[in-house]
């Protein structure tokens, strides 16, 4: 009787229509159990962690693809500066030891990208709209949050056929003759930037980003300030098209940050924005 109750409960939880099964028919019962098992397997695989070296390997492949589309800006001082800010912020998080690598892409478009394993890229087009180190920190902190929460990694897993991620994770890091699973996952991960993440992932990165920037000692309103600047730009400008397509509306993002930050950040408002240091580096001094 106990087994029967369990099976009934399991089938009930699958929400199968009453007519779809008949307790007197063993075959349909077996099929229902098989479905339950494979769903369970999928859930398990989707949430199984990818070992960090594999995450970094995948992220490196995705980063390489991004760099194939837009090379790094030829300005070592700016590149070092962005890495200094980014690495300092990453030290304030739960993954301080990842091999974080930041870069400015030589690209007029306004955009920023995070890839698994700690790769964070912003475009020259976006950097040019910033007015302070705190604003840069806000954007980098948002991207760092995507890596911390493994948003891209999880989205790639969800989109991959069952078992692909697990097979990839189980293979040795350096495979002779290349790794076809790696290539499939890397290309899926690259395409993701054309679709965007779930809105909730972006909202989460916003609210984590302002905290990480605050932890780094920065004025936490840097990220909202950048979002406001973007809001003031001509929405029809093609340089903004991909960013608008793949992110929630700026007004929604700002409204959420407004509600979340009011009353919680008062004591941090004196934190510096380091506009002068930002200006020196950008001005080439």
């Amino acid at each position: 009787m106990k087994i029967g109750f369990t099976i009934a409960a399991l089938l009930g939880s699958l929400a199968l229509p009453a007519a779809a099964f008949d307790f007197s028919n063993l075959d349909s019962l077996k099929n229902a159990l098989k479905t339950a098992q494979s769903v369970g397997q999928q859930v398990k695989q989707a949430t199984e962690d990818v070992p960090e070296p594999k995450e970094i390997e995948m992220g490196g492949g995705i980063a390489s693809n991004l760099l194939g589309a837009a090379p790094p800006l030829k300005n070592p001082a700016v590149q070092k500066y962005v890495n200094d800010v980014g690495r300092w912020l990453a030290l304030q998080t739960e993954r301080p030891d990842l091999p974080w690598q930041f870069a400015v892409l030589d690209d007029e478009d306004v955009n920023a990208f995070a890839a698994p394993g700690g790769y964070v890229f912003i475009t020259k087009g976006l950097l040019m709209h910033m007015k302070s180190e705190a604003e840069l920190a806000g954007v980098l902190a948002h991207e760092i949050s995507h890596v911390l929460r493994k948003h891209h990694l999880n989205a790639i897993k969800k989109g991959a056929r069952t078992g692909l991620m697990a097979e990839f994770a189980a293979q040795a890091v350096k495979e002779k003759g290349g790794n076809p699973n790696l290539l499939k996952l890397v290309n899926a991960g690259t395409e993701l930037y054309a679709r965007g993440l779930d809105k909730d992932d972006e909202f989460e990165a916003d609210r984590m980003g302002v905290v990480i920037a605050a932890r780094g000692g920065y004025d936490p309103y840097g990220l909202p300030a950048v979002l406001q600047t973007l809001q003031s730009l001509n929405a029809k400008d093609s340089k903004l098209a991909l960013m608008f397509k793949t992110h929630p509306a700026l007004s929604d993002r700002l409204s959420l940050l407004d509600k979340l930050m009011t009353g919680r950040f008062e004591s941090l408002e004196g934190q510096p924005d380091l506009a002068e240091r930002f200006g020196s580096v950008m001005g080439g001094k």
């Binding site: 492949g61 390489s64 693809n65 991004l66 760099l67 194939g68 589309a69 837009a70 090379p71 790094p72 892409l105 030589d106 690209d107 007029e108 478009d109 955009n111 475009t123 020259k124 290309n187 690259t190 395409e191 930037y193 054309a194 991909l242």
Partner: peptide, 19 residues
């Protein structure tokens, strides 16, 4: 200036290991 990251390049990526 470079117009790099359009959707086309995301759907047909070319890795740049040197970069």
């Amino acid at each position: 200036g470079v117009r790099g990251l359009d959707e086309e390049k995301l759907h047909h990526p070319q890795p740049n290991p040197q970069a």
